[in-house]
Design a protein around this nucleic acid. Structure first.
Length: 568
RNA sequence: CGGGGCGUAGCUCAGCCUGGUAGAGCGCACGGUUCGGGACCGUGAGGCCGGAGGUUCAAAUCCUCUCGCCCCGACCA
C-alpha cells in the first residue's frame, strides 16, 4: 500500500482528552477517532490491527472446536425478561424502543439470544456439547467510559457460549477455552497472567480473567511464585502473621477516653500500639439487607466484593452516620464489638485471630483496650472478607503475595444452569429425563486487547507493534521522492517485497526525511526499509527493526531476503 | 450519580479577572530556497468564541439556564 493512496494522518499534538498512552498513540497514529464519550471510529490503520487480532482469535477458537455465528446487536426485551436480567442489569443496559413502542436493548452480551437459539434446536444429550462464538459489537452504557478503547461504551468483543450435558463436559470446554485464550495472548506476544476472578453480574461459579500486565491497568492482581494468581476482588490469603496481643489473659478490659480520635491510626498512635492490635468495625447496608456489622483487623481493609457475595447483594454500602448511631449507639468512629447486639455480626479471620485488642466502645470519645473475644465480645460469624495485599502469605504455599496491575482482556465463566433454567433450555438425558443444560461463557475484548498491546509495547517515540498485531509488517521509505533514481529503486523494491507476501506500507510521500522517520517511529511497523540517495550510491539499503532501531546497511541484492528474515 | 476541571480555527492553546471590530503555534493551499531525524522565507484560506436567554450603547469576556467533553470514585471485555 502506498501511503499517498492510503488514509493515514498522524499528528504531533496529543489530543487533550486522551489520558493513557495507548489512547494517545492510537489517536496520534491515525488509528482511532472519537465520536462521543466511549464511542470511536476505527480508521484504516486501526482497523488493520483489529483485523489481525480477529484472525488470531478465529484461528484459536476454531481450533478449540467452537463454531462462529453472528447474533443481532438489537435484542427484544422479552428474552431479557425471561432470564430476569431486564430488571437486574440496570442502567448499563441501553434500552430502546421500536416504532411500535416495543422494548429492545442493545446487546451488552448475548447469553439470552444464544440460549434461545440452542433451546430450539437441541433436544438430546447426544447433540451436546456445543460451543458457539461471535465477534460482534457490544454496548454497555458505562457510568464512566475512559481511556479510549480500554473502556469504551461501544466495543468489539469476542463472546463464546458452550452448552453441556454434564459438569465434566463443561470442565473440558472451559479448559479448552482457557488454553485458546492463552494461545491468543501468546500469539500476540503479550505478557499476561491468568487469575482467579469474581463472577460479577454474569453469574456462575468458577471464573478466570486474562490480565495483560501493565501499570495503567485498572485491575489489581496478587500473585505468588507458586502460580497462584487472583484479582484482588477475589483473592484469598493464607493466615496472616498474628499481631502481638496487647495484654496477658488476666488483664481486664479497660475503657479509655479518646476525645475526637476516630480513625484507627489516630487511636493506635494515642494508645501507643500498632494498628494491627486494633479491631476495625464497619457497618454496612444495602437496598435489600438489614445492616450488618463487619470487623476486620485494624491495619486492614474490607473487600466489598467478597462481602457482597457473602451477603448475596449487589452493592453493600457503608452506613451513613445516622444508621451507625442507631446500630452502635455512638457516632461514626467509635464502633466496636463489645456489647454490640441486634445486628448480624461478621468477623473477618484477621480480626478473629486477635487475642487481646483495642476497639471502639460504642460510646462517643471512648475506646476499649485489652478486649478479648468470648470474655468481652461475642465472637460473631467468622468469615473471609479481607482485601488481600502485597506481602500477605500465599493461600497455596509458603510464599508471599506480590501485587501487580493488569488489563482485563478476557474473562471466562462456568455459568452452570442459571440461564438454561430461567429460559427452559433443556435436553433429554440418557434416562429420558428433562434437564437444564450446563453452560459456560467466554469473553475477550478485541479493541481492549489491541490497546493493551500498545500499553505494553511502546517507547517515547511511539508504538512498537508486536509483529502479529502490526497493521503492516514492513515500512518502506523512499527518502528522496524527487530523485528519479531513488524512486525507481524504491518502486522496484516495493514490487519485490510484495511478491514475498509481506504487507508493505510504502511511504512515497513528498515529505522530508525527519518527518518520515518520526512517523515511522510513531506508527511502529516492525521492520523499516530506507532507500536514500546516499546509500544507493554505494549500492546499499538501510534496514532496521522498530524494537531496537539498530541500522543495518545491506547490499541491494540481499535486501528482500534480509527483510523476510527480520519479519519472521 | 457525587466531587473537580474544560468548551475560542482541523489540532494544541492564549485572550475572559478589568466588556470596545478574534490571536499564536502546528496543520492546510500557493510560490521560492532547502532535503538522511518533525527546515526556512513570503502569500493565503480557514471562526455563529458549544447552545439559548439576560444585563449593557456595546458580550468570547459579566449573569442565568442548558448541552457536550475530561479527570477522581462505584461498574467491566
Amino acid at each position: 500500500m502506498r501511503w499517498s493512496q492510503f488514509y493515514l494522518f498522524t499528528t504531533r499534538e496529543v489530543p487533550r482528552d486522551a489520558e493513557v498512552i495507548s489512547h494517545q498513540l492510537m489517536v496520534r497514529s491515525g488509528m482511532l477517532k472519537k465520536l462521543a464519550a466511549g464511542i470511536y471510529t476505527m480508521m484504516p490503520m486501526g482497523q488493520r490491527s483489529m483485523a489481525k487480532l480477529e484472525a488470531i482469535v478465529r484461528r484459536e477458537l476454531d481450533r478449540s472446536g467452537a463454531l462462529e455465528v453472528t447474533m443481532p446487536t438489537i435484542q427484544p426485551a422479552e428474552l431479557w425478561q425471561e432470564s430476569d436480567r431486564w430488571s437486574v442489569y440496570g442502567k448499563e443496559l441501553l434500552r430502546i424502543q421500536d416504532r411500535h413502542g416495543r422494548d429492545f436493548c442493545y446487546a451488552p452480551t448475548a447469553e439470552e439470544v444464544i440460549t434461545d437459539a440452542v433451546r430450539h434446536d437441541i433436544r438430546s444429550y447426544k447433540q451436546l456439547p456445543v460451543s458457539l462464538y461471535q465477534i460482534q459489537t457490544k454496548f454497555r452504557d458505562e457510568i464512566r467510559p475512559r481511556f479510549g478503547l480500554m473502556r469504551g461504551r461501544e466495543f468489539l468483543m469476542k463472546d463464546a457460549y458452550s452448552f453441556h450435558a454434564d459438569a465434566d463436559s463443561l470442565d473440558q470446554t472451559y479448559r479448552a477455552m482457557h488454553d485458546a485464550y492463552c494461545a491468543i495472548l501468546e500469539a500476540c506476544g503479550l505478557e499476561y497472567k491468568v487469575v482467579d476472578a469474581d463472577t460479577g453480574n454474569i453469574g456462575g461459579k468458577d471464573s478466570n480473567e486474562f490480565m495483560v500486565l501493565a501499570e495503567t491497568g485498572e485491575s489489581e492482581i496478587v500473585s505468588c511464585e507458586c502460580g497462584y494468581a487472583a484479582n484482588t476482588e477475589k483473592a484469598v490469603t493464607g493466615e496472616l502473621p498474628s499481631a502481638p496481643p496487647l495484654a496477658a489473659e488476666e488483664v481486664a478490659i479497660e475503657k479509655v477516653e479518646t476525645p475526637d480520635l476516630k480513625a484507627v491510626p489516630e487511636v493506635a498512635d494515642f494508645l501507643d500500639i500498632e494498628p494491627s492490635q486494633m479491631l476495625k468495625l464497619m457497618i454496612y447496608t444495602s437496598e435489600t439487607e438489614e445492616p450488618v456489622a463487619v470487623a476486620v483487623r485494624g491495619d486492614r481493609e474490607i473487600n466489598e466484593i467478597k462481602l457482597a457475595r457473602l451477603l448475596g447483594v449487589d452493592h453493600p454500602v457503608l452506613a451513613d452516620d445516622a444508621l451507625v448511631e442507631r446500630v452502635t449507639g455512638a457516632p461514626t468512629g467509635f464502633a466496636g464489638p463489645v456489647g454490640l447486639s441486634g445486628v448480624r455480626f461478621l468477623v473477618d479471620r484477621s480480626a478473629a485471630a486477635l487475642m487481646s485488642f483495642a476497639c471502639g466502645a460504642n460510646e462517643v470519645d471512648a475506646h476499649f483496650r485489652f478486649a478479648r473475644w468470648g470474655r468481652d465480645a461475642d465472637p460473631g460469624e467468622v468469615v473471609d472478607v479481607l482485601l488481600a495485599d502485597a506481602g500477605d502469605p500465599c493461600p497455596e504455599c509458603d510464599g508471599t503475595l506480590q501485587k501487580t496491575r493488569g488489563i482485563e482482556t478476557g474473562h471466562i465463566f462456568k455459568l452452570g444452569t442459571k440461564y438454561s433454567e430461567n429460559m427452559s433450555c433443556n435436553f433429554l438425558d440418557a434416562e429420558g429425563n428433562d434437564q437444564p443444560m450446563i453452560m459456560g461463557c467466554y469473553g475477550l475484548g478485541i479493541g481492549r486487547t489491541v490497546a493493551a498491546a500498545i500499553e505494553q509495547n511502546h517507547d517515547d517515540s511511539g508504538i512498537v507493534w508486536p509483529g502479529p498485531l502490526a497493521p503492516f509488517s514492513v515500512l518502506l521509505i523512499s527518502l528522496n521522492p524527487q530523485d528519479e533514481e531513488v524512486v525507481a529503486a524504491t518502486d522496484e523494491l516495493y514490487g519485490q517485497l510484495r511478491n514475498t507476501g509481506l504487507e508493505v506500507l510504502y511511504d512515497d510521500r513528498a515529505e522530508r526525511a525527519g518527518v518520515k522517520f518520526n512517523d515511522a517511529d510513531l506508527i511502529g511497523i516492525p521492520v523499516r526499509v530506507v532507500v536514500g540517495k546516499r546509500g544507493l550510491k554505494e549500492g546499499k539499503i538501510e534496514l532496521s527493526r522498530r524494537i531496537d532501531r539498530e541500522k543495518h546497511l545491506v547490499d541491494r541484492a540481499d535486501v528482500v531476503e534480509k527483510v523476510v528474515e527480520l519479519s519472521s
